[in-house]
Design a protein around this nucleic acid. Structure first.
Ligand code: FES
Ligand code: FES
Lengths: 141, 141
DNA sequence: ACATACCTGACTAAAATGGTCAAGTTTGGA
DNA sequence: TCCAAACTTGACCATTTTAGTCAGGTATGT
């Protein structure tokens, strides 16, 4: 049960972006250098963030990326969804009535994993980029 | 971020075991058939559960496995630990002061992932086999 | 003695992960 | 005008992890 680096990097990059967002667009090259993430990999990630309207791009020299929403409105849920980092605890297809072992009913632990999934997702829904910014300035204003 | 089948099967098998535990030892063959889990795979899993003193084995004909503790004292944490299903959200080594990218300090999202890890582990610590049994008999006595 | 069931370790096919690489297009500025 | 910075797209790939299988054992109740 581990977090993939795609999800981890996406959040890391967005926190970085949000910090420098005020004045100019932020280039991936800068984020790459500051956070130690491969530039090519960041490009894949931002391509998805853009499709999901979490960031906007500005091309050309002095270009870069800008947040497309208020940091308060960008939940971890949104970010993870954008980069396909999904929480998957059950093995079966949820919408089906069949169980994970191919049987006709859900297995004896299905409800447990479902609870777990909700538990984790709740965490993601209650965290926004804003929270992370405040958190990292050590003390709130 | 997904649960592996080793962890899922371990819990599934133990719930099954706990249900039939009262009278006789339960053979892996039975669990295999009832839960639709490969027998050879179950053997690997139970080998670990035994090493961690969660179950006891009884060899020979009519043999099988028996719980080694009260269902109330077997937390999901214990089970997962036994089969090496671990929650890993940070990339760095926790005890080190270094960050995940090889830098000298922890990255800007480290605290977040640490919080997440605690959040998930709390769930596992608050669930025992007993809870799962009750839960599956639909209604409590 | 023999079938049942535990025990152990090696092995492997397939999937996921964590990237790299190559070849663009767009645009601001010297 | 021309160049370099920066975004864009898509293919490619090595390594690791997962989810098992397989082949041999050993112990024991009947
Ligand atoms: S996890 Fe859904 S049926 Fe087993
Ligand atoms: S996750 Fe610990 S430093 Fe980045």
């Amino acid at each position: 049960m581990k977090l993939t680096s795609k999800g981890r990097y996406a959040v890391m990059a967005l926190v970085d972006l949000a910090r420098f967002n005020n004045i100019n667009p932020v280039s991936l090259r800068d984020i790459s250098l500051r956070q130690g993430i491969s530039l090519d990999y960041l490009e894949q990630i931002f391509s998805k963030l853009k499709k999901n309207e979490i960031v906007k791009s500005i091309r050309g020299t002095q270009g870069g990326y800008v947040l497309n929403k208020n940091p308060n409105d960008i939940k971890l849920t949104n970010i993870f969804h954008a980069v396909d980092e999904k929480v998957k605890t059950v093995q079966c297809k949820k919408e089906s009535k069949k169980g994970c072992n191919g049987k006709a009913t859900k297995c004896i632990t299905h409800n447990l994993w479902d609870e777990l999934e909700i538990h984790i997702n709740t965490f993601f829904e209650n965290k926004s980029l804003k929270d992370l910014l405040n958190n990292n300035k050590e003390t709130r204003v």
